[in-house]
Nucleic acid binder design. Structure first.
Length: 419
RNA sequence: GUGGAUGUAGCUCAGUAGGUUAGAGCACCGGAUUGUGGUUCCGGGGGUCGUGGGUUCAAAUCCCAUCAUCCACCCCA
């Protein structure tokens, strides 16, 4: 059988690297300018790190999508399906609650879920994650959203849709779930099969149903927002007023829900108009109970993560200008055997300042220049017996064809002036 | 997990009423052109037609299975 990448995984090829770096660089700049520090947790953790964090209702769904294995020491380990749990574990393990609040942490890298692959949905995918811990203020929720908005804007994304909602505090959710069970329970036989299933596990997910019959029923019901308590409502209003004040456009989604138990109050998603069924670029929200759930000190927090694959898809869809590979500055062409060693040594010195490649065997000028073109070089420099006598190179600007003789001692400075 | 589409050269794709040696464009290599490139012209290499079975005198083509990709659903920490 021919070897190939595992289902749902892919190679990032050399010509694609620059756009990935672009996303990392923009995110890093925006986040670090805001005092967010990078924390890199391991790619795998004890399985309990993830099972503890997700809560019970999600167990069934979530566990079968995790890549878990037993190592040689008999430990049950899991490849991270997301960043939050690992970051929280690190936060607790290193006693970071002692740091001045808020503690802002970001992470990047691959994560793993055993889902059925599709465009924009892979088994190894890549995320940039951000958590702001230690404060309950609405200002922090707004800042988290603002950071994300700034990253997406600087990347050049258009057609962005920011959806904002609130899932309230735990008692509010309990009350709403109770309400849904009562209301939907009465019309159970009119619901789609999928929704009946959801009704058992997580009634709020019925609101997401795409079935038209379900939608008709759901439209008559009260929304999660109708159930949130006074404090959560005040918090929500405050988040909105910050965002308005900062000119960050958003729309209220009164039925926004979260798959996991640990979320409370603010929940948000960023969507992009047209990248197929996987339109969510990012999800995030507040999770005041999480750190405590995981055995740490009571610590409020807000976080988000976005998927790089989907953001790149969205950028392509928007025809955003992405940086291309950095061009090679100079390609050295040895025209006789003696020159091969000369250009190789010359290149070593020049590489302190420029990107320089050379041919590894003798070339006649025609071949050499063709090769320089293919390497994408800005300049080519030819070296043969005449140049050796003069201690020089024939330096050629490939785009214009302009060519001059430059002494080898001055070539670096000449290049620096012209690039 | 459910339903559907697709799979032929490195890439994009032709090629099926089953029938010599499976094609094109791009890319690659060589030559025209041994001290000056990108154009042009000529030539060349590269395929067990995703894989495995089956039907047949004969399969890229028909049937079954399997793997992979894509689309919708599902899920989405």
């Amino acid at each position: 059988m021919k070897l190939q990448a595992v289902k749902g995984t892919f190679d990032i090829l050399p010509e694609e690297q620059s756009k990935w770096r672009f996303v990392y660089e923009v995110a890093q700049r925006v986040l670090e300018h805001a005092g967010v520090q990078e924390l890199s947790p391991p790619i795998f953790e004890h399985s309990e790190v993830f099972t503890k964090s997700v809560g019970e209702s999600a167990d069934l769904v979530v566990q079968k999508e995790m890549y878990s294995f037993t190592d040689l020491g008999g430990r049950s380990l899991t490849l991270r399906p997301e960043f939050t749990a690992g970051v929280m574990r690190a936060f607790i393990e290193h006693g970071m609650q002692m740091c001045p609040s808020p503690i802002k942490l970001w992470s990047r890298g691959p994560a793993f879920r055993a889902e059925k692959p599709q465009k924009g949905r892979y088994r190894q995918f890549h995320q940039i994650n951000c958590e702001i811990l230690g404060l309950k203020h609405a200002l922090v929720d707004a800042e988290a959203i603002a950071l994300l908005y700034q990253i997406f804007s600087e990347l050049g994304l258009k057609n962005l849709l920011v959806k904002l909602g609130s899932v309230g505090d735990p008692p509010d959710r309990k009350a709403y779930n109770q309400y849904l069970r009562e209301q939907l329970g009465q019309v159970q036989d009119k619901l789609s099969e999928v929704s009946r299933e959801r009704l058992k596990l997580n009634p709020m997910r019925v609101l997401d149903s795409k079935d038209e019959g379900d939608q008709a029923i759901v439209r008559e019901l009260k929304r999660p927002l109708d159930f949130i308590g006074a404090e959560a409502r005040a918090h929500f209003e405050e988040v909105k007023s910050y965002l308005r004040n900062w000119d960050i456009p958003f729309e209220i989604d009164d039925s926004i829900v979260r798959g996991l138990d640990y979320y409370n109050r603010t929940a948000f998603e960023f969507h992009h108009g047209d990248i197929g069924s996987q339109s969510a670029l990012c999800g995030g929200g507040r999770y005041d109970g999480l750190v405590e759930n995981m055995g740490g000190p009571k610590t409020p927090g807000v976080g988000w993560a976005f998927g790089i694959e989907r953001v790149l898809l969205a950028l392509e869809q928007d025809r955003a200008e992405l940086p291309t590979q950095q061009r090679l500055a100079l390609f050295l062409i040895p025209m006789d055997d003696e020159a091969v060693a000369e250009v190789a040594k010359f290149a070593l010195g020049l590489r302190q300042r420029f990107s320089v490649e050379h041919a590894y065997t003798r070339r006649n000028p025609g071949k050499g220049l063709k090769e320089a073109d293919r390497a994408g070089a800005v300049f080519a420099a030819l070296r043969g017996s005449k140049e050796r006598e003069a201690g020089s190179y024939q330096l050629k600007h490939l785009a214009s064809g302009e060519q001059i003789t430059v002494s080898q001692t001055q070539l670096a400075d000449f290049l620096a002036a012209r690039l």
